[in-house]
């Protein structure tokens, strides 16, 4: 993969393989929210049936295709890495974003788990700095790994003096 444009190498780690299923469920839910009401209305309102069922089918088709293909692709593209000195992430393909937050400037380390994430045993780790634009979000780490990482990051950042601005 041509992942090495620019002079930076991609971060070393992929997200947990379970993120693929998690993303897939999210996409399916979104598809259902989009196509469901259209389909129900189409079945109820006879006069506009074609006008509602065709878009519903289109939304469902696109959503299903995306749910099958996109998560696999995202899993190949999204990367993360934590070193002794920085947190590093790469997300996106059409709009790629590399984020680097130095350990010495990290202000808070949060882990969150949504209900859906919990059922997959996943966590999100958010590292914030004093800048509103400086947060690095690692979505889709194994729960145990995220907790361990958060602890390590907290220790490392506590060891750094200063107010990180």
């Amino acid at each position: 993969m041509a992942n090495t444009s620019g002079a930076l190498r991609p971060p070393r780690n992929r997200f947990d393989p379970r993120t693929v299923a998690w993303w897939r469920v999210q996409l399916l839910v979104a598809t259902l929210i989009g196509a469901g009401p259209l389909a129900v209305l189409g079945l109820l309102i006879e006069s506009a049936r074609a006008w509602l069922l065709i878009p519903a089918a289109a939304v469902a088709g696109i959503g299903l295709a995306a749910a099958i293909a996109m998560p696999i692709w995202w899993h190949r593209v999204h990367r993360w890495e934590v070193t002794e000195t920085a947190v590093y992430s790469l997300t996106g393909y059409f709009w790629r974003t590399w984020r680097v937050a130095p350990m010495s400037r990290i202000q808070t380390v949060d882990t969150t788990r949504g209900p859906l994430q919990r059922s997959f045993g996943l966590s999100t780790l958010v590292v914030t700095t004093a800048s509103s634009a400086g947060a690095v979000k690692l979505e889709g780490l194994d729960h145990g790994q995220a907790a361990e990482l958060a602890e390590r990051l907290t220790e490392l950042t506590d060891a750094t003096p200063g107010d990180a601005t």
């Binding site: 059409f94 709009w95 937050a101 601005t165």
Partner: peptide, 30 residues
């Protein structure tokens, strides 16, 4: 400077361009 954010759209990648954001605690934040 308290971090970097580099971003590149598909168009930028074709042209070999990249946008670098220096993040900061001051002013606009980046």
């Amino acid at each position: 400077i308290i971090g970097w954010r580099m971003s590149q759209s598909l168009f930028q990648r074709r042209l070999g361009l990249m946008t670098l954001d220096a993040t900061s605690a001051a002013g606009q934040g980046h």
